[in-house]
C-alpha cells in the first residue's frame, strides 16, 4: 500500500517537473479550460439570472394580477355592500302607503261625522 502511494507521488512530481514550454502549453490549455468553464459558469449564471428574472417577473405579474383581482373583488364587494345598503333602506311600498291613506281618510270622515252629530245635539 505504501509502495503505491509512493508511485503516485512520483507521478505527480513528474507532472510538476514539466519543461517550461510544455508548462506554457499546459497553462494555455488550462486557461482555455478555465475560460470555457467560466463561460459555462457565466452561461449557467445568466440562465439562472434569466430564470430568476423570469420568476420575479412572473411573480410580479401574478402579484399584479392578484392585486387587480382583489381590487375587482373589492369593487364587487363594495357593490354588494351598496346593494345590501340599498336593500337595508326601507322600500317605499305605495300599496301599503295608499292603504294607510285610505284608513286615515276614513278616520277623518268618521271624526267629522261624530263632530257634526255632537254639534247637532248641542244645538
Amino acid at each position: 500500500m505504501q509502495g503505491k502511494l509512493a508511485a503516485d507521488n512520483i507521478e505527480m512530481d513528474a507532472n510538476d517537473l514539466d519543461a517550461p514550454e510544455e508548462r506554457g502549453q499546459d497553462d494555455q490549455g488550462d486557461n482555455e479550460q478555465l475560460n470555457e468553464a467560466e463561460d459555462h459558469q457565466d452561461e449557467a449564471d445568466n440562465d439562472q439570472i434569466d430564470k430568476t428574472d423570469k420568476a420575479i417577473t412572473k411573480q410580479q405579474a401574478l402579484q399584479q394580477q392578484q392585486r387587480a383581482k382583489n381590487e375587482l373583488d373589492g369593487d364587487k364587494l363594495s357593490e354588494k355592500d351598496d346593494e345590501a345598503m340599498q336593500d337595508e333602506q326601507p322600500e317605499i311600498d305605495l300599496v301599503q302607503d295608499y292603504q294607510e291613506f285610505l284608513e286615515r281618510r276614513k278616520e277623518v270622515q268618521l271624526a267629522e261625522e261624530r263632530n257634526e252629530a255632537e254639534r247637532m245635539e248641542v244645538d
Binding site: 286615515r104 278616520e107 277623518v108 271624526a111 267629522e112 263632530n115
Partner: peptide, 10 residues
Amino acid sequence: AKTPKDQKAG
C-alpha cells in the same frame, strides 16, 4: 290636511 288627531283635539 286634517288628521284624526287634529279632529280629536278639535
